[in-house]
């Protein structure tokens, strides 16, 4: 049993070492798989920020994950075919990954602002469902909008370009994603320890108290929601580059559910919880999938046991002083 800080460090170290081991054993797929873990962790961390610390259970984070993914796919496909974007934009898209990240973050923030502005009027289960409603609208739109492939999705064939690095090399791309993970972990740690973070946590506990000190909790929650959407959106952008492909399935409610399951599985309101959740989920999916055709049955069973007996998520299994 160890302290949380120590466990966090171990998690990062393991993630850091895996690609080298994979290289050593000539198993490049292990790197790809770990990249997926890292990307899903980023999406989970984004959700956990509002879900764990702000008590806002969004069942529509696939919206941001998907939009980040589609922004990336659309910009890249235009750049590859040198087609102009829409009829009024004199712009051919781009395959520069830095630029794509910027646009993804801006667009996801904007969408999160819109969704958040309307959704945050509600609370509790109503909030869960209204965020789902917005995500579903986008999902059905993406299926039936023919310009970018509809349900067939959009292939971009090669990853977007990062200065000085060949992103098609799995290890390079892995460390790009890993760096983003570190960046967001750092930023979130700073925010959570700042007065903003304290107010956000206070909103979860007692909104009236927040109001009484002259702060409008709506604004705090909206800013956090936008920030959370931007992080998840960036994860979506990376996911498109990982697969060199994007399709409406990243906007589906199952995707929202999967991100949420990672967060809860790992341990809500623990900064590194979603990472452990993602590791656990992917390992289960990979190993059970090889053992039995009915692997989802066993996955369900294991998750139920986890909920019943590891009450505060997997993180708590390793920790001495469980917070719950």
């Amino acid at each position: 049993m160890i302290k949380e800080e120590k466990l966090n460090l171990i998690i990062l170290l393991v993630l850091f070492v895996i690609p080298f081991l994979a290289y050593l054993f000539n198993e490049p797929y292990l790197t790809t798989l770990t990249t997926k873990i890292v990307i899903l962790s980023i999406a989970g961390i984004g959700l956990n920020f509002i879900l764990g610390y702000g008590g806002l259970v969004s069942f529509g984070h696939a919206a941001f994950f998907g939009i980040g993914g589609y922004v990336t796919g659309i910009l890249a496909s235009h750049a590859q075919n040198s087609e102009q974007m829409f009829f009024f934009l004199q712009f051919d898209g781009s395959n520069q990954i830095l630029f794509i990240w910027l646009i993804s973050i801006i667009i996801c923030s904007f969408i999160a602002l819109l969704i958040g502005y309307f959704s945050l009027r509600t609370s509790g289960v109503y909030f869960i469902m209204i965020t789902l409603a917005f995500a579903q609208m986008l999902y059905y739109f993406s299926i039936s909008w023919p310009a970018y492939g509809g349900e067939d999705g959009l292939s971009i064939y090669v990853r977007n370009v990062f200065p000085f690095f060949n992103t098609m090399n799995p290890i390079n791309f892995y460390f790009i994603c890993f760096t983003w993970l570190l960046i967001f972990l750092t930023i979130l740690k700073i925010i959570l320890n700042s007065s903003f973070g304290l107010v956000l946590k206070a909103c979860k506990e007692n909104e009236e108290r927040v109001k009484s000190i002259g702060i409008n909790p709506f604004n705090i929650k909206l800013i956090s929601f936008v920030f959370s959407g931007a992080i998840t959106g960036l994860a979506g952008s990376l996911y498109t580059d990982l697969n060199r492909f994007v399709s409406p399935s990243v906007l589906s409610w199952q995707m929202s559910g999967e991100i949420m399951v990672l967060v809860i599985l790992g341990g809500v309101a623990r900064l590194y919880g979603p990472i452990l959740g993602a590791v656990f989920y992917i390992i289960l999916e990979q190993t059970l999938g090889g053992v039995s055709e009915n692997w989802q049955f066993w996955l369900g069973l294991i998750i139920i046991l986890e909920v019943l007996y590891a009450r505060a998520g997997i993180m708590s299994l390793f920790l001495k002083d469980s917070k719950s």
């Binding site: 879900l51 949420m260 399951v261 599985l265 989802q296 369900g300 069973l301 998750i303 139920i304």
Partner: peptide, 17 residues
């Protein structure tokens, strides 16, 4: 609520499969 979501999500997998 979150634990409930997770547990009943797992039940879906269990029942469907």
């Amino acid at each position: 609520h979150l634990d409930q979501v997770l547990a009943t999500f797992a039940l879906i997998l269990l029942f469907s499969e």
